[in-house]
């Protein structure tokens, strides 16, 4: 009988190749992805009194504070014809999804050390499930935004005449960019923290700093007017572009910059791919260094 060497199902060997994804395998574990999502959703607010209301409280209060501090106190103007509060709420809603994806995935290895140390499944399922379960939270926050939008347009005195642009149909694409960016950065950070714990300290305040550079509580034009020398800092920040584009779509003020959107698309995919490569490299041996 001929010994066929190539009919092995798979070979476990030291990691040599840089890019080595087994998409078929990830597909086989899709049920696990959804079970993790379900777990996150049903267990997050167990034994809390307000439960999912926490999804609403956080963005509402943040927007309120932002309106008080940045608009009323510091007199930062928002886009013309847009209520201050709504402007902040839109920015925070978009920013929050990115932030939640980033923070939720940035400690993947450390948080799941226990389970990763015992069983094998494609590790990337874990951060992916975080991104998917955050979608629910994002959806709820969008509904909040929508209700305030309707209030300002239909019931507030004086009425606002803002109208979403037709290009709002591109909105899901923006969500994908945010997910890819959050996931990409999260995977890079989680991979590096397995060896160098310093990064855990960086993430918390780094995200805080990034928020100020991401046009969350001011329009990009205003920044350009006031600080033209530093404009490059935020001009090419993909998150800032996403947040700004989101507001442009919803409020119908200004135009979408297609060059910047293409740039953002390229950056998102790039960051995501780098994240995936680093993550894949780490998952094979992180259990020895964590």
């Amino acid at each position: 009988m001929k010994i066929t060497e190539d009919n092995w199902l798979y070979v476990i060997s030291p990691r040599k190749k840089l890019i080595d994804f087994n998409f078929k395998e990830i597909w086989r574990y899709k049920d696990l992805l959804f079970l993790f999502v379900k777990r996150d959703i049903i267990t997050l607010y167990k034994q809390t009194i307000l439960g999912p209301l926490w999804y609403l409280i956080q963005p509402l209060f943040t927007s309120l504070i932002f309106t008080l501090i940045f608009n009323n106190l510091a007199d930062i103007p928002v886009n013309e014809g847009v209520p201050n509060f709504l402007f902040n709420l839109a920015g925070i809603t978009a920013w929050n999804y990115f932030k939640e994806c980033l923070i939720g995935t940035s400690d993947t290895f450390k948080k799941n050390e226990n389970i990763f140390g015992k069983v094998y499944f494609p590790r990337v399922i874990m951060p992916m499930s975080v991104v998917v379960s955050n979608l629910l939270k994002f959806g709820i926050q969008l509904l909040v935004l929508l209700s305030f939008y309707i209030y300002y347009v239909g019931f507030a005195e004086p009425r606002y005449t803002i109208l979403p642009q037709f290009n709002l149909i591109l909105f899901p694409v923006l969500v994908v960019f945010m997910a890819l960016l959050g996931l990409g950065f999260g995977m890079i950070i989680s991979s590096m923290t397995t060896k160098y714990r310093d990064l855990t300290f960086l993430v918390q305040f780094g995200v805080q700093l990034l928020m100020y550079g991401s046009a969350v509580m001011y329009p990009m034009v205003y920044f350009k007017d006031k600080l033209p020398n530093y404009y490059w800092l935020i001009e090419w920040n993909p998150i800032a572009i996403i947040v700004e584009s989101f507001r442009t779509m919803v409020f119908g003020v200004g135009d979408l910059d297609s060059n910047k959107l293409i740039y953002t698309a390229v950056m998102s995919c790039l960051i995501f791919l780098i994240g995936l490569v680093v993550f894949n490299k780490t998952e094979k041996s992180f259990i020895d260094t964590i």
Binding site: L9, S13, V119
Partner: peptide
């Protein structure tokens, strides 16, 4: 190593 929790430094495992 067999259960792929960690990877070997050298050598390999082939399985069907």
């Amino acid at each position: 190593i067999l259960s792929r929790v960690t990877s070997p430094t050298i050598g390999n495992i082939k399985t069907k």
